[in-house]
Computed example of a mutant assay.
Amino acid sequence: MSSDTLLTTPLNALHLELGARMVPFAGYSMPVQYKPGLMAEHLHTRQAAGLFDVSHMGQLRLVGPDAAAAFETLMPVDVIGLGEHKQRYGLLLNDEGGIIDDLMFVNRGRDIFVIVNGACKHGDLAHMLARIGGRCQIDVLFDRGLLALQGPQAVTALARLLPGVEKLVFMTGGDFSWNGADLYVTRSGYTGEDGFEISVPAAQAEALARALLAQPEVNPVGLGARNSLRLEAGLCLYGNDIDTVTTPVEAGLNWAMQKVRRTGGERAGGFAGAARVLAQLDGAEALTRKRVGLVALERVPVREHTELQNSDGATIGEVTSGLLGPSVDKPVAMGYVGAEYAAVGTRVSAIVRGKVVPMEVAAMPFLPPNYFRG
């Protein structure tokens, strides 16, 4: 895609002013890093607060008395039982149990507010319209801005602009107003740190971003550090670590499927791909592969698509994400291996440019999360 066909977010001029290196991502021109670079931006987010432009992501609202029940038919997730202004992670599945997209949603009382991945948003919308468009109203909010403020000092900075935001806890949200703009703020994110995601009208997005960057704790952070932060936190990147041929059980996302939707629950099944997903959950279908965390035992970064072998040199899997973790100061990765190699502590070999790099299956996340649970 050429640069003149890329879409831009409401913060594009600000990114250029700040000296960002822009790259194509999900059809948009997006900042991969600013002048300090990926390492500095990553560490600043872990220590203070980083501001990310994630306006390329898709925002939707589902409206109507049947919206929650309808949305539940698309995901192995409890939508009906979610309390007002509570947020949950969701998995949009196809009929084979593969993951069409992972998403976040909030019961706002007046609607179900959904945030989907940028590269998937048009496909997600078409899927929702085809499957549940007759049961609820689906409003497209793709023109809204979305900012993520992440890090241990994010609450200090944001509370100066939005008094009361400090009362939110992890995976809850609320309505706020700033300079006449109606915002919706959730205490969540994609870094493993405390933080917030702020939905803002496009016309006010740049002014809000500038106000946040004026706070002494806050620096701009690009997609490069967003990727390294989420990998250290053990969080999947759609298209790398999960996709349409990967089930939630293979991906180790069982925690995202509440008991009420699983075998024996009062609303068990009834979602796309349920037959296969439930069979994997109860052991009727044996898993042939599992997503695992991996740590290299030599200081060699192991990137996505790297082959994994057992001690006999047989291929047993592939790395799906990998880099040198700036906070943990060692090469970390995630990938898929045969189920018999998925136990923590198992030794495997990565083949990096023809060289064998020893790796060990490790628990995720690679560092403890700092979510604020109250």
Rank of each mutant, 00 (worst) to 15 (best):
D194E: 10
G195T: 06
G189I: 04
R226A: 15
G180H: 07
L223I: 14
A181L: 01
W178V: 02
G192C: 04
N227D: 15
R210T: 10
F196P: 04
L229E: 03
G192M: 02
S177I: 08
W178Q: 02
F196C: 01
E217T: 11
A209N: 13
T186G: 07
T186V: 14
G195N: 07
E206N: 08
E193G: 03
V218S: 10
A211H: 13
V221M: 08
S188C: 07
A225V: 11
A203K: 04
S188F: 09
L212H: 11
A205L: 06
A209H: 14
A211S: 15
G173K: 10
G224T: 11
G189H: 06
G173A: 09
L208H: 12
S199R: 01
V185K: 00
V221C: 14
T191L: 05
R187F: 09
D182Y: 00
D182A: 12
Q215T: 07
G189M: 03
A211G: 13
L213T: 11
A181P: 10
L183S: 00
D175F: 01
T191P: 00
N179C: 11
L212D: 10
R210V: 12
E197V: 05
A181S: 09
G174M: 02
P201E: 03
N179R: 15
T191V: 03
G224I: 07
S199H: 08
E217G: 14
G180P: 14
S177F: 06
P201V: 01
P201Q: 02
D182Q: 09
G189L: 03
V218H: 13
A181Q: 02
N227T: 14
W178F: 12
A205D: 09
L183V: 06
E193R: 02
N219P: 00
N219E: 11
Y190P: 01
F176P: 06
G222F: 08
G192I: 03
S228G: 05
G189S: 01
P220H: 13
A211D: 15
T172S: 13
A203I: 03
L208D: 09
A181G: 01
G173V: 01
W178E: 05
A203V: 04
G180I: 06
E193P: 01
L213M: 11
Q204R: 13
S188L: 03
A209V: 08
N179T: 10
N179P: 09
G222N: 13
E193V: 03
A211M: 07
R210M: 09
A211I: 12
G195L: 00
D194T: 09
S228Q: 15
G173S: 06
V218K: 07
Q215H: 11
N179Y: 04
G222Y: 10
P201D: 02
N219F: 14
N179A: 14
G195P: 05
V221Q: 10
V185E: 00
A225H: 10
E206A: 12
V218Y: 14
D182T: 07
S177R: 11
A205Y: 12
S177L: 09
G222W: 04
V185L: 01
I198N: 00
A214G: 15
Y184P: 00
I198S: 05
A202Y: 13
A181D: 03
E193S: 02
G224C: 09
T191N: 05
R187H: 13
L223H: 10
T191G: 06
V185R: 02
S177G: 12
D175Y: 04
G173L: 00
L223P: 14
S188I: 07
A207D: 14
D175W: 07
S199T: 06
A205S: 15
F176N: 01
L223E: 10
D194Y: 12
V221D: 09
Q204T: 11
